[in-house]
Design a protein around this nucleic acid. Sequence first.
DNA 1: GATAGGAATTGGACTCTGTCTAATTTCAAA
DNA 2: TTTGAAATTAGACAGAGTCCAATTCCTATC
Lengths: 138, 138
Amino acid sequence: MDPVQYTRDNLADKLRQHGVNPTHQRIEIAYALFSRQSHLSADQVMAIVNEKHSETSKATVYNTLNLFRQKKLVREVIVDPTKVFYDPNTEPHYHIYNVESGELTDIDASAVQISGLPELPGGVVAEGMDVVIRVRPE
Amino acid sequence: MDPVQYTRDNLADKLRQHGVNPTHQRIEIAYALFSRQSHLSADQVMAIVNEKHSETSKATVYNTLNLFRQKKLVREVIVDPTKVFYDPNTEPHYHIYNVESGELTDIDASAVQISGLPELPGGVVAEGMDVVIRVRPE
DNA sequence: GATAGGAATTGGACTCTGTCTAATTTCAAA
DNA sequence: TTTGAAATTAGACAGAGTCCAATTCCTATC
Ligand SMILES: [Mn+2]
Ligand SMILES: [Mn+2]
Ligand SMILES: [Zn+2]
Ligand SMILES: [Zn+2]
C-alpha cells in the first residue's frame, strides 16, 4: 500500500488526503518518517530534518507530530519511559522492543491470533491494542 | 498467592525474601503498593507515603521503586507517555488502559491465548510481553 | 556503652521531554 | 496591494526522573 517510493510530492498529496495543509516543514517531517519507515522520537525527527540546514523549530516538530497523530498519519508507540516513538505504519501491527539498544521492530499482525480476551467494561470503547515483546541481548 | 492481608510485618519478610533490606521507608512504600494492589506512579506513591507526616524523600521513592523493580518485587507498566506506573502484581497479566481517565485495569492472562508470533531475531531473549488495550469513554 | 564503617536517606541542583505563549512570518483570497 | 487566518518560532516554563555530596542510620566489633 502507498507509494513504493516516497517523494516530497506524493507525501504532499498524502497530507492533503488526511486533511493536513502540506507546508514545507510538514513535508520535511513526513519525509523523515515515511522515507525511512522507521520508528523515530521527536528528537530524532528534529535532528534529521535540521541536518543539512536549520529547517524547523522544536515547537513545530512537536506541533506537527501531534497533528499527524490526530489526523492518523502516524501512530504513537509507548515503550520507552523517557520518550514517545512515532510510527509511520498505521496498519495494525505489533512490536519487538530491545530494552538494551532501544531498537523497535515491527511484527506483522495478520499471522497473530489472540483469543480469550475478556469483555470490556461498560461505557468504554476500544481504541486499539498494543502488543510489545520486550527483549534483551542474551 | 501471598498473604491475604498485607501487613508491614509480612511485607518486611517479603522484602527479605527478595534480597531487599527492609528499612522503614521501603516498608512504607511497599505497603502503599501492596495493600492497595493498584497501579501507582512514583508521584502517587510519594503522596500516599507522606500523607500523615513526612516520611520519605523524592530521591528515596525513586531509588526504592527502581530497587523493587530490579528485585522483581514490582513490575513497570509503560502506557502513559508522561509517567511510569508500578504494579505490585508480578504474575503474567495484561492491561486495559483508559486513555481519558488514566485508569489502569488488570486482565487475567491465563484465559488469553496468543499464537502465531514470529521467531525472535537471533541474539536476543524475551524478557516479557506487554499487552495493552487502549479504551476511551464511548 | 563507645567506635567505626558501610548502607541508606536526603535536599536540591540538574537533565530531558514536552507544552505554552506571544510575536512574527507566510500565504492565499479579495 | 491589502488583509486576516494559519503556521512557525524563540524561549520561558512544567513535570518526571537522575545525580551528587552531605548526613543519618545500623550493625558489627571491641
Ligand atoms: Mn530546505
Ligand atoms: Mn511513620
Ligand atoms: Zn511499528
Ligand atoms: Zn497490572
